[in-house]
Structure formats: structure tokens, C-alpha cells
């Protein structure tokens, strides 16, 4: 009975989260919903006597794989939201019809198929413990697939390294070349380097632009990233004339 309560609470949540994955715009939200679906599946595994797989599901899928997905999302840009407009005309109705057909076929198949006996359950198979039972199988019947899969893992790791390896096409400019380029680029305005943030202002945080001698802020003193993100703070509130310069004599 507890299993059916768990099932009827978790299964609709899993299906809803999976549907949400299709409908949300941002890839990060999709990733979080998928993580929830995977956690639900871990519950289902444990409820069905697959204790080891349930733990592995949490560790490998929600832990490692989803972390990798989020990591790549951060690399590629979190704001890269997906446009949900269809680019191939007529794709959406065809896809939904095909999916409904496939889903209906599966569901009616499961509904009509019968083994002609009651489900056995894992009580005898798990008698010595789920992990022990799995280990017994893994290192006897399935030892050859196990070895092949380990070779596959190593190949995948190597392949990822080869794919992600980036070779510089031009040599990195040396300090001398950079210096010469700075002096020979026409203007000498930045030959001595760009001003640092917060110079001549009462505040030297990296997002407060330096003040020029006439009191106007110098945007060049802020990192390009902060500038494009719009994270520049108005430095006028930190100007020197705002300070109370009155000297109070201490008695």
C-alpha cells in the first residue's frame, strides 16, 4: 500500500515535470525539471527493489550528468533561450500526431499484453541483498559486457578530450609585442595603460568607474564584461565634493 501512495503522488509529478521540460523556454529550467524527473525515477527504482540502481541514479544522473549539463549551459550561455516557434513548416502537428500514435500504441499494448501469471517480485532474487545479487551477475554472466563497457568509458573520456582540445592558430603575443603595438597604434592616450576603477572617487570597487579630472566618469576604467552587462554603478554619488570637508575641532 505505501508503494501505491508513493506511485500515485510521484508519477503524475514526473510526467508533469517531463511535459514542463518540453514547454519551458529556458534551457536551465529544462535541466532542473529533468533533474526532478530523474530523482522521481530513483524513488521508483528503490520502491521496486533496485536499491543499488536507485542510489546510482541519484549519484550518476542527478549528480554527474545533470551537473555536466548545467556546466555546459553556463559555458554556452544561460540566456540562450530557445525560440519555440517552428522553423520547419508543419513539423509540430506531425510530431504531435506521431507521438500520440506511438504513445497510444505503447499504452494499449501494455494494457492488452499479459504474461498469464502474477508478477514474481524480487524477494527471492534479492534474498542475499540487492548489491550482492547484482555483483554475482555482473562478475559471472555479464563479465564480458562489463569489460567492454569499461573500454567504452575510457574511449569516451579520450574522445571528449580530443574534441574539446583547442589549438591556437596564432602564437600568443609576447609582452614586448603588446607593448610595441600599444605605442605604435596611432594614439598615445592609452599607452600607459587604462585607468583603474575608482580612481579619484571615494569608492574603489570594480564596478565604480574612475573620475576624470573634470569630474565625469571614465567608462574605460571598467571591465568590458561589466560594461556590457550594465553592471556599472553611477560614480557621481562618490565624488569628492559630496564629502563633508568641514573640520571639527576637538576640544
Amino acid at each position: 500500500m505505501p508503494e501505491s501512495i508513493l506511485f500515485w503522488i510521484m508519477a503524475p509529478l514526473a510526467v508533469l515535470a517531463a511535459l514542463g521540460m518540453l514547454l519551458v523556454k529556458k534551457a536551465v529550467h529544462s535541466a532542473l525539471l529533468l533533474a526532478w524527473v530523474m530523482i522521481t525515477l530513483a524513488f521508483f527504482y528503490i520502491a521496486q527493489g533496485a536499491l543499488f540502481l536507485g542510489i546510482v541514479q541519484v549519484v550518476v544522473y542527478t549528480g554527474a550528468v545533470m551537473m555536466l549539463f548545467l556546466f555546459i549551459l553556463m559555458l554556452v550561455g544561460v540566456d540562450a533561450s530557445d525560440s519555440l516557434t517552428e522553423t520547419i513548416r508543419g513539423l509540430r502537428p506531425i510530431a504531435i500526431t506521431a507521438a500520440l500514435g506511438f504513445g497510444g500504441l505503447m499504452v494499449s499494448l501494455i494494457g492488452r499484453a499479459s504474461l498469464g501469471r502474477e508478477p514474481i517480485g524480487l524477494e527471492t532474487a534479492n534474498a542475499a541483498g540487492n548489491v550482492q545479487g547484482l555483483a554475482q551477475l555482473l562478475f559471472s554472466t555479464y563479465v564480458w559486457p562489463f569489460e567492454v563497457v569499461s573500454a567504452l568509458l575510457i574511449t569516451a573520456a579520450l574522445g571528449a578530450m580530443v574534441l574539446a582540445h583547442h589549438q591556437r592558430e596564432v602564437a600568443r603575443p609576447t609582452q614586448r609585442e603588446l607593448s610595441e603595438q600599444r605605442f605604435r597604434s596611432g594614439s598615445l592616450a592609452t599607452a600607459a595603460g587604462l585607468p583603474g576603477p575608482g580612481v579619484f572617487a571615494r569608492h574603489n570597487a570594480v564596478d565604480v568607474p574612475a573620475l576624470l579630472p573634470d569630474g565625469s566618469p571614465a567608462p574605460a576604467s571598467i571591465s568590458e564584461t561589466l560594461r556590457t552587462r550594465g553592471d556599472m554603478i553611477d560614480s557621481s554619488q562618490f565624488q569628492l565634493d559630496q564629502i563633508n570637508t568641514e573640520v571639527v575641532e576637538e576640544k
Binding site: 504474461l115 514474481i120 524480487l122 551477475l137 569516451a156
Partner: peptide
């Protein structure tokens, strides 16, 4: 669970490993 043996769980385990490779 329906068939009362652990072979399905072993296959699911292999699927997880292959999925991890595929993701990488």
C-alpha cells in the same frame, strides 16, 4: 521485478554507463 530476476537491473546499469559516455 515482474520476472523475478536481476538481469533487467544489470542491463539498466549498463544503459546508465553508456548514457554517461554518450553525454560526455
Amino acid at each position: 521485478r515482474i520476472n523475478g530476476n536481476l538481469d533487467g537491473q544489470v542491463v539498466a546499469f549498463f544503459t546508465m554507463v553508456v548514457a554517461a559516455c554518450e553525454v560526455v
